[in-house]
Design a protein around this nucleic acid. Structure first.
Lengths: 109, 109
DNA sequence: TGCAGATATGTCAGAGGTGACATATACTGG
DNA sequence: CCAGTATATGTCACCTCTGACATATCTGCA
C-alpha cells in the first residue's frame, strides 16, 4: 500500500497495518463488517441489474450520488440501516436480504 | 386510545390515526419495520436463552438497561444497526441473522 | 407490608450519520 | 482532443441516534 492511500485511510478512522493488526478486529466487528460488505455488494448488483445510475438511485432515496457511492463502497460513514433502505427501495424484500446475508461476501474474515 | 398515550406517541414521531392512515405506510416502510421487529424478537429470545438480564446485556454492549429495553420493544429511536450489534454480541453470526430475517415475525404487514 | 431484581418509559446532551456540494477520475462517442 | 456521463472522494452543517439518568411498574419473597 502506498503512503498516500494509507494516510487517507487512517484519516477516516481505519486502522491500517500488518495482518496481525487486522486480527485485532474482534469477532463482533468482523461479523458486522462482513454483513455490511455483503449488503453493499447486493446494492450495487441490484442497481446495475435495473440499469440505474447512482444519481437515479439517489433520487429515489432522496439522497445524493456521493452517498450512494459511499454505500456501495461500504464506507465507514454509512450505516447498515441506510444500506437496507437502499435495497428495499430497489425492491428487495426481507427474504431477499436474508439470502444476501446468508451468502459469503468473498471477503476474508 | 386515550389522549395522553396518543400525545406521547405523536411526540415521538409516530403518525397516529385510523386504519386507513396506517395503510399510508409504504411498502418500503413496512419491510423495514418487519425486519426491525424480527430482529428485536430474536434479540430477546437469545438474551433469555442465555439467562442474561437486560442489565447484563447492556454491560456487554457498553450501553444501558433502558436502551436494551427499547431495542427489544423495537422502539422508534433504535436503529437496525444497534439491533445487529446486540445480536452479534450475543453470539449470532451473519447466517443466524439471515435465518431470523428469512422467518415471518408474526406481525401483519 | 416492604424489599430486591427485572423490565418499561420519558428525557436530554453529546456522538455520529446524513444530504449536499465541490472536485477528481474514468470512460465513451464525436 | 473534447464534451458528456458515471463514479469516487473530501468536507461540513444539520439532525437523528445513543448512553445515561430518573422514575414507574411488576413479580416473588421474607
Amino acid at each position: 500500500m502506498d503512503k498516500a492511500k494509507r494516510k487517507r485511510l487512517e484519516a477516516r478512522g481505519w486502522r491500517v497495518g500488518t495482518a496481525s493488526d487486522f486480527l485485532g478486529l474482534s469477532a463482533e466487528e468482523a461479523a458486522l463488517v462482513e454483513m455490511k460488505v455483503s449488503l453493499s455488494q447486493a446494492l450495487r448488483a441490484r442497481r446495475e441489474a435495473r440499469g440505474l445510475s447512482q444519481v437515479a438511485l439517489a433520487k429515489r432515496l432522496r439522497s445524493s450520488q456521493s452517498r450512494v457511492a459511499k454505500m456501495e463502497a461500504a464506507d465507514q460513514t454509512v450505516s447498515i440501516d441506510l444500506l437496507l433502505r437502499g435495497l428495499v427501495v430497489l425492491g428487495a424484500t426481507p427474504r431477499d436480504i436474508a439470502r444476501v446475508l446468508g451468502r459469503d461476501s468473498g471477503v476474508a474474515a
